[in-house]
Amino acid sequence: MGQYIARRLLQSIIVIIGVTLLAFLTLHLAGDPTYLYVSERASTEEIEATRVKLGFDKPLPIQYLNFLSGMTRGDLGLSLRSRQPALDMVLERLPATLELTLFAMLISTLLAIPIGIISAMRRGTPLDGGIMLFAMFGQSIPSFWLGIMLILFVGLTLRWLPISGHKPVLSLLFEGNVEQAIRNIPEAIRFLIMPAITIGVFSLSRNARLVRSSMLEVLSQDYVTTARSKGLKERAVIIKHAFRNALIPIVTMLGLEFGFLLSGVVVAETVFSWPGVGRLVFNAITQRDIPVVQAAVVLFSFLFIGLNLLVDILYARLDPRIRLR
């Protein structure tokens, strides 16, 4: 196991270098970012001076090597726009994005499991049909549109939930302000519901269908029949055998979903004025704030790699047939 993890970590370094190189080349191939940092009425000399100030006059390989050597020291550079350490800016917004994605995942998995199970148990009934139809629709609505509709109906017409904004919980926890964090929770959930649905409805629908079909499949397997015939209670059968196996596809999705989640987050954060990483990175890209983009990319690849390692270990626990190589 230890050897396995060591090997994986080595691979991760290669991946991180690849990721940063890709991001670096991308942003530089896209043109000279200097023009975004001068006044709209700046003269040619002022533009040239700004280019030198920002370090864009050096050859690209040098710029990249400088970045890499900084990264080994944990220094990902200063944001061109705000002069703050780029990594700090990303970390500062990470809690809000984590709250959103975790809550969305909560909705999309925790709700999907009971819904999928009910649907599988009631296979062929109108309830099953209705759930599956709803799930189909959930997979065909563009998320930004759903978000705006939620704002107009739930937020504005019905006034059930706040239209936009964010109430911090995780960032307070990280600061050690536990009391205030707990006090914020009810309000924070009110702010979370609509954006989380916007991001999560696609996964919710897909996962519900996934759970349903894998439940159906697992329930017809030999070992479930065996377990039943051994006289195990139905609930035990479901929980010990069927449910456990039905979780496998969902765990697979969790690992793969992460990359896709960010683009969903960008949309939801824009629609609901959510102060998270998605918007930060999106703005940084359009402003060619290269250090911030790099910091976010590095951080996200770390998270991605960690999450996948976790998923693989989880796998091995869920399914004894799988051996970690």
């Binding site: 896209a30 683009s263 790699i305």
Partner: peptide, 22 residues
């Protein structure tokens, strides 16, 4: 598979902007 990992670890939205901008 390492190339695949790089791509998976790379936020898709950034890749999109890269291609559309370049």
């Amino acid at each position: 598979m390492r190339i695949a990992d790089v791509q998976l670890a790379f936020p898709f939205i950034l890749l999109t902007i890269m291609v559309l901008v370049v």
